[in-house]
Computed example of a mutant assay.
Amino acid sequence: MEANTGEDVSLPKATVQKIISEVLANTDITVSKEARDLIIDGGIEFIMILASMASDMADTENKKTITQEHVIKALEELEFQDFIPQLNDVINDHQKLLKQKQIRDSKLKKSGLSEEELIRQQEELFKKSRSRLNSQHQTPEELKKEQEQEQ
């Protein structure tokens, strides 16, 4: 079932190799380039089938967006129920990260400072930190002279 859309579709070889290496970390097994390429092709095919089924489910519900529920239903229909608990864990982790990002972004907005002012403050903190680091390598006379110059 090769879908030819006129675009080359692939997965990053380095990423796939890293995943394979992690899975096989405690074994003496190595994977040939050809086997890795076959795993990539199988992964692409699986993603295409899963996306197509999820899209069909969204269409059936007159939705224009595929949701995680559509993907989970497609996995169930493809009889990949064993993936669902791990997928739910990933979804929960992702939602926690999004919430943390929203809190952080909210704090920045509430600060009332422009991005330029925040960058200026950050640079000032870097300058002070470098100064402290350098002062550890300075004589007391050099440190006193530097402090007088800052004032």
Rank of each mutant, 00 (worst) to 15 (best):
S106C: 09
I39F: 07
Q81E: 15
K107D: 09
S114Y: 08
I119N: 09
I47F: 05
I84G: 04
M57G: 02
I72M: 11
I91N: 07
N92I: 11
G6K: 06
K64R: 06
S135A: 15
V71C: 01
K107Y: 06
Q17S: 08
D93L: 12
Q102S: 12
M53Y: 04
N88L: 13
I103R: 14
P85I: 05
A58S: 04
T65I: 06
M1L: 14
E34T: 05
A3K: 14
T65E: 04
I44W: 01
L11C: 01
S32Y: 03
L78R: 07
K13Y: 08
E142A: 12
Q17C: 02
D93Y: 05
V31I: 09
F46Y: 05
E116I: 10
A14S: 10
E2A: 14
I66Y: 06
D105C: 04
E34R: 04
E45F: 02
I19M: 05
I29A: 05
F126V: 14
L78E: 07
V23P: 03
H94Y: 14
I84D: 06
N4E: 12
S129Q: 15
A54D: 00
G112C: 11
Q122R: 10
M1C: 11
L97V: 12
G42C: 13
I72N: 03
P85N: 06
Q102R: 15
K110Y: 02
L24K: 09
Q151V: 10
V16P: 00
E146M: 13
K33W: 01
N62Y: 15
V9A: 05
E7W: 12
D82Y: 07
N88I: 12
F80M: 07
S131I: 10
E123R: 11
S21L: 06
E148R: 15
K107V: 07
L78S: 08
D37S: 10
D59M: 03
D82E: 15
H137G: 04
N88E: 15
E123K: 14
I20L: 06
K101E: 08
I66E: 02
S114G: 04
P85C: 04
Q147Y: 03
A14Q: 08
L38K: 13
E22V: 04
D89V: 11
